[in-house]
Amino acid sequence: MQSDPIKNTADINAVHRVLTRWGNVREAECFIIGCNFALRVGDLLKIKLEQVKSDTIILNEQKTGKQREITINNNAKSAIDRLINWYQLQNVEPTYLFQATGNRAKKLSKPITARYLNMKLAAASEALQLGLSLSSHSMRKSFGYNAYVSGVDVRYLQILFNHRTELQTLTYIGISKKTISDVYLNSSIGVGL
């Protein structure tokens, strides 16, 4: 499935608002945390609540087997706090940060699934008419794109994403030929005639 980064932070906030308005608080906070952690969805959904009690999370990535340390920034901390408050209101004692609540009778602890999250994000994109193919992978790409345009060196993002080349990273975060062309158009220097 092709997924797009969200290049406008106002659109990221709009996705959060619409999910919250629909009563999908867990998914809204998952989206914000995902945009701030830049993890693959499989790694994100397996985070346990006990792992977010400090300022960093250490985990082993499923795909690469590499150990990864994530510093929890203020936006992610706020989202985690809102999520924990929501669980308390729901009388849920979660094992996972993104605990599925449908298995309470069987006392099974499972996180929500990527498929479920993808469905919610696609619905939000459609409702907001973003014109984007939005999925759980968009969170990771959105982190990369927004970090890059704010001045983070592509080499750091390359390391963060475990990409082999800078070009792979630029393509991954949605920096296209049109984006490069726009740099020329918007960087006109000299006297216009």
Rank of each mutant, 00 (worst) to 15 (best):
N13Q: 13
A14D: 12
R17S: 10
V18W: 10
L19F: 13
R21P: 00
W22I: 00
W22K: 10
N24Y: 14
V25D: 04
R26P: 00
R26A: 06
R26Y: 02
E27Y: 07
E27W: 01
F31I: 08
F31G: 02
F31S: 04
I32W: 04
I32A: 02
G34A: 13
F37I: 01
A38D: 08
L39V: 11
L39N: 05
R40H: 09
R40Y: 12
D43C: 06
K46M: 12
K46L: 12
I47V: 14
K48Y: 05
L49F: 04
L49I: 13
Q51A: 11
V52K: 00
S54H: 10
D55S: 11
I57G: 11
L59E: 01
N60H: 09
K63P: 00
T64Q: 07
G65Y: 04
K66V: 08
K66T: 13
Q67I: 10
R68D: 04
R68C: 06
E69A: 05
E69T: 15
T71C: 02
N73H: 10
N74G: 03
A76C: 08
K77P: 03
I80K: 00
I80Q: 04
I80R: 03
D81P: 02
D81L: 09
R82W: 07
R82I: 02
R82V: 02
L83R: 06
I84W: 06
I84M: 11
I84T: 13
Q88D: 10
L89V: 00
V92D: 05
E93H: 07
P94S: 08
T95P: 00
Y96N: 06
Q99P: 08
A100K: 07
G102N: 14
G102T: 13
G102P: 00
R104E: 15
A105D: 03
A105L: 10
K106N: 08
K106R: 09
K106G: 02
S109E: 12
I112N: 07
T113V: 10
T113A: 11
A114R: 11
A114M: 05
R115C: 08
Y116T: 10
M119N: 15
M119A: 14
L121G: 01
A122T: 12
A123L: 13
A123Y: 07
S125V: 02
S125M: 01
E126A: 11
L128T: 01
L128P: 02
L130G: 05
G131H: 12
G131P: 09
G131A: 13
L132F: 10
S133K: 14
S133F: 08
L134S: 07
S136Q: 07
M139A: 15
R140H: 12
R140W: 14
S142D: 07
F143L: 07
G144K: 04
Y145W: 13
N146E: 06
N146P: 12
N146K: 12
N146M: 07
A147Q: 15
Y148Q: 06
V149L: 03
S150K: 13
S150M: 05
G151S: 06
V152K: 08
V152W: 04
V154A: 15
R155H: 07
R155G: 04
Y156G: 00
L157C: 09
